[in-house]
Structures are given as structure tokens and as C-alpha cells.
Design a protein around this nucleic acid. Structure first.
Lengths: 194, 194
DNA sequence: CGCACCATATGATCAACATCATATTTCACT
DNA sequence: AGTGAAATATGATGTTGATCATATGGTGCG
């Protein structure tokens, strides 16, 4: 009975946060445990005191990334539904997001990387996606069309826009793509003034 | 000067085709040269007689995948613009595509996988994306709104829809997502009957 | 039939890396 | 201050995989 100082919990959080950053930036397979631990200012050996395996860390990282990312910061907004959606679109389809200058959304950054795994990781990803689409659906007006359908398609467009932008080579095309998704997304999701 | 039998060209094509299949299915890092060669019914050693490196193969595979995928088969269509777009949406946002029961589109299957590489691979990806958006743009009516903008956003939605669907765990949600993207995509890209 | 040569196969080599076993440090409490 | 366990570090181990060097085998020509 020693160390009630919560050191361990904080260390664990630091590892998770480093994992989110590095996995998003380089993909699961291009990041070693040693890389993550180093980034968290630790050495590689202690890792298994915190996580059962690299895969287990990945599953938690997907969830943690969602919590840290822009969406989470919108949740307790209190603004109008329309303002929330506008802010979501603008923040998500932003070059700063694509270049990972703030917390990346795992749905866009890890999409095909998650698709090739099994088990927990997929489940975590699915949960995060469900949460995003619920967030959007709740803010769509009830009257025109099927809200859920538009929310799903809108989410796909946002995620696809960012994922593709990250893969592109050409700065100008990246900007066009993001701009196009912002504007069409706004038509699709926001209540237009009449 | 022997072997005018073109054996080598055909072998090379077989390797490329195996690479497309396996990279799409498992991602670049989870496929070894040996896996690819075995899939092409060869042994690992001969690989470097055909490609300079695994990365070089990847760049060519992105291009080859595009050529083999559904889009390519639409190109010499001769149908109306609307019919082409309808066919593209239906074929792309299809569970059979997601489950890779036919040639996968590299834009969706390799998006985040390409995003973490450098050089040739990104360039090849960008070229394929440019080709897809050009294909769509050319088939949009000139009158309402900015064609190119709608083409870019539509492409992002298609690609995002398939990429996310592949990562999801839940069959029902996959179907909803694909259906939503098909219907919203159709509103966005097809000329609606009045 | 045998030769020259290209395509492919066999068999290293060398470096990364996930995971584990063991050592060292650090804190809370006496 | 001293002690013991928790937290972290150091140092294997074993495997996998990209790449390369060398060997084999089949092909078309003389």
C-alpha cells in the first residue's frame, strides 16, 4: 500500500494521449511501443504494466481520440442546433484538422487502418461513429426528409473529405475539396435561411 | 535475346493484381512480399526482378487498382450522363464493393493507408482522385450550382461511405450508411425528374 | 541435341519490434 | 531515516520480413 499519488493513472493517460497522436499521424503499424513510450517520456519496458497489448491500446486510443477531438468539445455547447452543426462542419473540414494541428478525429484518421483489424478496435470505432451520427441527427429539423439518412450521409462526407484530403498531394486540391464539403455539407445539414 | 514469349509481362501483371487485392484487403504493412508472390503463385525471390521495392509496387498498385475498379468499366459507357452517375453510385455504395467481392476502389480502401506514406504513392492517389472527380463533373448539368463543388463533395461522400462502412462492426448500420449515401448522393448528383 | 540466357526459386542476411524477465528507482508510511 | 511494494527502466528473446546473392530450370535458336 503505497503510491496513492495517482501517478500511474496519469502516466496511463499520457501513454494514451501519445498513442492517439502517433497512431493518427503514422498509422498503427508504423508506430512502435518504444515510439509511444518515448513520446510519453518513458521507456518501452513499462508499457505492459498499463496495457495488455498493443492492440488493446489501439482500441482504447480510438475511444480516447473521440473524447479529445473537436466533437467532444461541442457536446456541452448550449447553442442552437444550427450553430452547433455550422461549427462542427467548419472545425472538422478545416485544413488545421487535416494537418493534425489539433486533436484528430479517429473516424477520419484511422478509417482504413481500423478496417483491417478485428474485434475491440472495430467495436470502438463503431461506437464513435454512432455517437457522431446521433449528435448530428438530434440537431436536424424534423420536417424535411429523413433526418437520420441525412445525418449518415453528411457524416460520410465529412469523414471522407478529411480522410481523402490527408492522402492528397496537392495543396490547392485539398482546399477545394474541404471547401466543397463545407458548402455542400452546410446545404445538407444546416437549416437554410429563407 | 531469347524469351520473346512475354512471360515476364504477364507475371508482372499477376503480381500487380495480387498486390491490389491484398493491399486493399489487409493494408500495406500487413502484407509481405512473400504473401503477394504466393498469391500470384510465385516464390518471394523473384520479386525484385519486377519492382524496385515494396513501396514502388504500392504506387503502381494504386494506379492499377483504379484501372481495374468499377469506374474504369463505366468510362466507355455511351449512356446518358445521368445513367452513368446512377450506375456509379449504385455500384460504388454497394455491400459487394465494401466486402471486396469485386475490384476495390483504392480511394476508399487505401485512404488512410496512403495518407501516411510519402512520394509516389500519394501522387498516384491524387491522380486517381482527380480522374474520379473529373468523371463526375463532366456529367453534371451546367445550370444549377457549381458542378465541380458538387462533384468533389459527392466523391468525398462516396469514398467516406465505403471507407467507414468497411470499418464498422454492425451489419445493419453498414446497410443504413450505404443506403443513405446512395439516396443523398443521388439527390446531389443526379438530375431529378421534375 | 546442346548452348546462351532470361525468368524464377532457394537460401542467406540484417534490422525492427512485440513481448517478457529482471533490475532499479521512488514514494508513503513508520 | 528506513523499508517494502509500486512504478518504471534495462536488457534479453524470438520472430517476422525486406532485400539481396546465388542456384536452378526452361526457352528458342543453331
Amino acid at each position: 500500500m503505497a503510491w496513492p499519488s495517482k501517478q500511474k493513472q496519469e502516466t496511463r493517460k499520457r501513454i494514451l494521449s501519445s498513442a492517439v497522436t502517433l497512431f493518427s499521424q503514422h498509422g498503427f503499424d508504423n508506430v512502435s511501443i518504444a515510439d509511444i513510450m518515448q513520446h510519453a517520456q518513458l521507456t518501452h519496458g513499462g508499457f505492459y504494466a498499463h496495457f495488455a497489448s498493443k492492440q488493446a491500446l489501439y482500441a482504447e486510443a480510438v475511444t480516447a481520440a473521440a473524447r479529445a477531438s473537436a466533437l467532444a468539445k461541442l457536446l456541452p455547447s448550449g447553442q442552437t442546433a444550427n450553430a452547433d452543426l455550422a461549427r462542427l462542419l467548419a472545425g472538422y473540414l478545416d485544413i488545421a484538422h487535416v494537418e493534425q494541428r489539433h486533436s484528430p478525429c479517429p473516424l477520419a484518421f484511422l478509417a482504413t487502418d481500423v478496417a483491417v483489424r478485428e474485434g475491440n478496435v472495430r467495436t470502438a470505432y463503431t461506437r464513435v461513429f454512432r455517437r457522431l451520427t446521433a449528435f448530428i441527427t438530434r440537431r436536424l429539423p424534423n420536417d424535411k426528409g429523413d433526418r437520420r439518412e441525412r445525418a449518415l450521409a453528411g457524416a460520410a462526407m465529412m469523414i471522407g473529405g478529411v480522410a481523402v484530403a490527408r492522402a492528397l498531394d496537392d495543396e490547392a486540391m485539398i482546399e477545394s475539396l474541404l471547401g466543397a464539403c463545407r458548402r455542400v455539407g452546410s446545404e445538407l445539414l444546416e437549416q437554410q435561411a429563407e
